[in-house]
Design a protein around this nucleic acid. Structure first.
Lengths: 195, 195, 195, 195
DNA sequence: TATGAATGAGAGTTCATTCAT
DNA sequence: TATGAATGAACTCTCATTCAT
């Protein structure tokens, strides 16, 4: 969509896909560059024609993940009906983090961001924007009386994301009861916001 | 407390402490055994007199973390006053996961458990017991009318833990507003459970 | 000067210049072809349109350096006044090897020639001619009585070159005292040849 | 001889010997650590139990070479008879640099020192002391009238070393005429110093 | 129990060169 | 001529673990 996207070499995307596959299967640190090039079907050296190094691939992935959050940020910006907006967001975001690649990559990026500033910067930026947007939605709902007043809206927003993401992660172990669990979490959150 | 604990060589605990220090600082996979023995001030070979290998140290730590959950499980078993019991648990558990070593080690163990059965087994066992105990507390509260009925109490229990642990993790970045944030989360959860 | 020179593609000379810059800065073996094409501002593949490979560039440079020795060989061929001829040669050659690119490239080529026959051949040929010309000048001087008899004129000739080139190399570290040092060396050599 | 020497693990010396063999044969930058461990008959990893890395081996060798210069410095310190002292030094030093390992290692270290401060520091230190000692010997000879006054004794000293070392290097190509050539150089130098 | 030398597989990265465009 | 993606061997170095002392 962006002008930058058009100039990306298709091989670069293949590498990213291969890396995602490996990271999901083995984890970032357990994945070697040889695993990635093997999965991508390219030679070892060629990887370095498209990425500066292994970390650059994760940064690239973190950027993509961060960009995907933008859609949710946009979704939350419609504050005419905070209750409906939030309900929709929770449903959509729960579905998003229920996808294994989002759930697992998310935790992989999150843990890496704890100690890797490059990752923290690129991914944390958009995550903070998402938290702010969500907090703003809550605040609007409080003002219009559909939500109870919250001590610290951003913290609650953060908590909502944690709860949804945690649910997505746990659903990996027991994917069968997925829908039920998602409903339980959603209901709890929405109920918790009621005045 | 157990008979096993009393026979533990003091050197073994020194190693564990050193390992914890390293894991907190660099992460499990980024920590080498040389880092650990360096931190512990012992020789490389001697580590293997006390642990079968690097993973065994993490298993040992996961066991300790798992045992610490037992205290909370016991705390939750008093179901005379589910509301008070839950309130106390949330306060205590929030304080527990606010300690950096618990927050960081927790996520380290959790992510490792995703792919490492040995870790999943030893840590997940007690975590599941904690979830069950928490769900039971919620169920009791529902029965006695102090909590609203929940679609899936274990999922809600899991969510509560996720929310508290997530808050502990985020407090590492901004430790100043710790108490306020903890209150916000606690209030939200307790409010969400209200009928 | 040669017909061959006129047909050289300007790009080829740009590559050589870039390579010289890199070799001076990092040394031959420490310089990668990517360094060279980066310095030259051309693409990686294009280098191979002008040179067979990295070594061919050094051979080309060695040839140029060898050709520059021809001027000195010609200068030494005038044996009417060996004393004046030698004095002039020493002054000129000292100035020549005092240029960093000549001093550094010289030692780079010399050390490479130790193990690389291609380099040894192309550079050593003219250097040997220079030594012979210098030895002949000394011999003439001995015959005409202006120089003392030498046990082995070629060895002395070689030694004179070593002394001058060594001085050029050392002057890289302390360029300030350049002229004084060159005079000291020149005087010593000329004095050593006196009968 | 020094207390430090006694604590050196014999394997470390084996590695150094193997490295010297490789450096002589292929040059420092052309030698891989696998070449060294192959020559030494040890495993790859074990090299790093004794040396921090490849460069540390060269630094160690440069230190040894530097220490060997100490003997010559001591020899030059006897200034009762500068002429005899210098004659002896030239003979001994010429023999020293006529050994291939000294000649080749010397140029290897010298060229590396041009761009590697660690090497320059450890080797250049003692070489400077040697130059100073040699210059002092020349100065004493000048005072006592056995040598002609020199414009810049240290430069002349440096030149003498260059000439001897250069001769050692050239003798690698034509070792047969070794003695004759050494005499030629020695005679020239001594003659050049005469008043 | 304690030591640290020894192992060799594996890590991430760079290398000179080729080739289709 | 010019490009840069593609190749895979080679690079230095680290890894967890073993073992003789």
């Amino acid at each position: 969509m962006s002008s930058e996207t058009q100039s990306i070499h298709p091989r670069k995307l293949e590498i990213v896909e291969a890396a995602v596959t490996c990271f999901l299967e083995k984890g970032y640190h357990q994945t070697g560059v040889r695993d990635i090039v093997g999965q991508a079907g390219i030679s070892l050296g060629n990887l370095y024609n498209h990425f500066k190094g292994k970390e650059a691939i994760l940064v690239f992935i973190a950027e993509i993940e961060g960009q995907e959050l933008s859609d949710f940020i946009g979704q939350l910006s419609d504050n005419d009906d905070p209750c409906a907006t939030l309900g929709l967001f929770i449903t959509d975001y729960a579905a998003y983090v229920a996808l294994p690649e989002n759930a697992l990559l998310g935790v992989e990026i999150l843990t890496e961001a704890l100690r890797n500033p490059a990752i923290a910067e690129v991914f944390g930026r958009n995550r903070n924007r998402l938290i702010i947007a969500l907090a703003e939605c809550i605040t609007q709902g409080t003002k219009s009386g559909v939500f109870a007043p919250q001590i610290d809206p951003p913290v609650v927003a953060c908590m909502i994301l944690d709860a949804l993401e945690g649910q997505g992660l746990h659903s990996l172990s027991s994917p069968s009861e997925d829908n039920l669990a998602r409903n339980a979490v959603s209901s709890f959150i929405l109920n918790g916001l009621k005045p």
